[in-house]
Design a protein around this nucleic acid. Structure first.
Lengths: 167, 167
DNA sequence: GAGGGATTGTTATACCATAACAGTCAGCCA
DNA sequence: TGGCTGACTGTTATGGTATAACAATCCCTC
């Protein structure tokens, strides 16, 4: 059964607060389970990243936090927070754009997700890619190559933007 | 029939000169066919990129050309040359590393290649990924997503490095 | 109460990429 | 032939992304 399209690229008008709240909660647990903690800094960074369904640059986050918090962080502080969030699986990196996006779906550590990035509205979504990753694994194995990380990113236009919905 | 492993990740000891020569020849033709020309600058940049089976950064190329040629180019000159080479399909970009590698196999414009990048010896190889890309296309279509560019990069360890061959 | 790991701060630097404008050259063709 | 056009490179300046190195703090534990 295919996932509903609405859940893959959510309506820009939807109430996003619950998404963020749920994500923060999930993060809290994951950090705790790993013997780490979702510190105020990490929480703030995650809030900024999770604040939209788009990928944001590290310096964007820096800027937004400066707007809100008054104090201006050093870039490396943001990067360190991002590192921890990426390690926790709460944030992924969109390699083709040097940007970060929040993982809103709990795929329970399964990193075999296809990333879809809309070049019109900048929204990012993930869809399960088990069989695709199997195929990639087989191709790698045929070349005696042992994968440690596999990256599948699709740049294109989401359904909403194809339909001409104003951004 | 699987491609021979030797052609995917060539022996570091192999005679690389013919690889480069062949690549330059191919570039010459492609540029000509497109009404463009493989200028001295582009040729030099391509030589540097094709000089190994690894991915190199734009500023590495800059540095190497400065060592050889005496004169130091502006970064943008290198990027412009790279842009033209990427457009011609002679060079690909390794997004996960912000680096460039030469395309040593003539896959005749078929961009559906899986990129394998060894994190130990830095070698990069491409293997055909038709069915994998089909799967990705299907997954995208199921989410009403229209791809314009699809990226499959696998970071890992090549057979030679697994076997403990000294780099 | 000493040691160690996690966390953040501070400062400096390295690395990656492009904007904007000028100038040269070759080919085309009115 | 003279002017137009497109391809190509130069020059200068700037913007964007990421990390090294070292110090300080806090908390937990043994």
């Amino acid at each position: 059964m295919p996932q509903r399209v609405e859940t893959v690229f959510p309506d820009p008008q939807h109430d996003h607060a619950p998404c963020v709240a749920e994500t923060l909660e999930r993060a809290e647990k994951i950090f705790k389970n790993n013997g780490l903690s979702l510190t105020p800094l990490r929480r703030q960074v995650l809030q900024e990243v999770a604040g939209s369904h788009t990928a944001v640059g590290a310096y964007d986050i820096l800027e937004r936090l400066a707007q809100k918090g008054g104090r201006r962080l050093a870039p490396i502080s943001v990067y360190r927070a991002l590192d921890s969030l990426v390690a926790a699986g709460m944030v992924h990196r969109l390699e083709s754009r040097n940007a970060f996006f929040a993982c809103h779906v709990s795929h329970a550590g399964d990193r075999r997700q296809i990333v879809l990035a809309c070049e019109t509205c900048s929204a990012v979504a993930e869809v399960p890619g088990g069989s695709v990753f199997d195929g990639i694994g087989a191709a790698a194995a045929a070349s005696t190559f042992k994968p440690t990380r596999t990256l599948v990113e699709v740049i294109g236009v989401c359904g909403r933007c194809q339909a001409g919905v104003p951004v």
